[in-house]
């Protein structure tokens, strides 16, 4: 009886976990993927969501089950059977999470290496944050704009700095941000893959106008981009 119920619980929970993992990895919680890095980041994200869903369902499931199943029965004032520990069990729940986080760490490291691999011939765009505007400079073209234009499928290297306090350059659809820090230039690599208009937001509190320190990035075909560039010169 006891063994059979344990067996049933194990089977049902395994099934639930697999279903949970699969369902969770299908969840779309991210904005449009508009860069090469977005695809890789989202893959990692989905694996994490799936793993998290399993852990979540497991722990909350045990919690709710135990709370319902092991309520004190009316009038029963005796203590429960004392169990102080179980070395095997404790080793298992130390080792398995350790293996999971090491695997995640390894995977995350791989994704990081991949998304930060320098492209052979990137186009450089200088980004300067100021209270409370963004400036984009295209070196060699003599163009400075407050709206970011990028040619699609062209690897970009942003060189990001600030004219006053710390800002953070963020395009959610590109899946990444980099702080604009006065006195230093930070690099950020992106290859836009989607033609469209996306928001540029400041992600680091930079003063009263922080919320409105936004502009847009317009990803367009190389021809459109060249036309825009020519129009600015």
């Amino acid at each position: 009886m006891r063994e059979r119920s344990i067996f049933a619980i194990v089977i049902v929970s395994m099934l639930l976990l697999v279903v949970g993992y699969l369902a969770a990895t299908q969840l779309n919680l991210m904005p449009t993927q508009a860069s090469t890095r977005a695809v890789l980041v989202d893959e990692l994200f989905h694996v994490l969501v799936g793993t998290a869903a399993v852990v979540f369902v497991l722990v909350e499931g045990i919690l709710v089950y135990a709370a319902l199943r092991f309520r004190q029965r009316a009038g029963d004032e005796t203590d429960a059977v004392p169990i102080h520990g179980n070395t095997t069990l404790e080793l298992v729940w130390t080792a398995i999470p350790a293996m999971i986080v090491i695997a995640i760490g390894f995977y995350a490291y791989q994704v990081l290496t991949e998304i930060e691999k320098p492209a052979p011939e990137p186009m450089v765009v200088e980004v300067i944050g100021r209270q409370f505007i963004w400036q984009f400079r295209y070196p060699g073209e003599g163009v400075t704009a407050q709206e970011l234009h990028l040619p699609v499928n062209q690897p970009i290297r942003f060189e990001i700095t600030s004219g006053d306090v710390i800002h953070s350059f963020w395009v959610p659809q590109f899946r990444g941000k980099r702080d604009a820090t006065p006195g230093r230039v930070s690099e950020f690599l992106v290859t836009p893959t989607e033609i469209g208009t996306f928001p540029v937001r400041c992600a680091e509190l930079c003063g009263p106008g922080h919320a409105n320190m936004t502009t847009q990035v317009i990803v367009e075909s190389p021809a459109d981009f060249q036309a825009w560039l020519a129009g600015q010169q």
Partner: peptide
Amino acid sequence: LATIWDGKI
């Protein structure tokens, strides 16, 4: 979780 498991909650 193991503490509350099989307890008299």
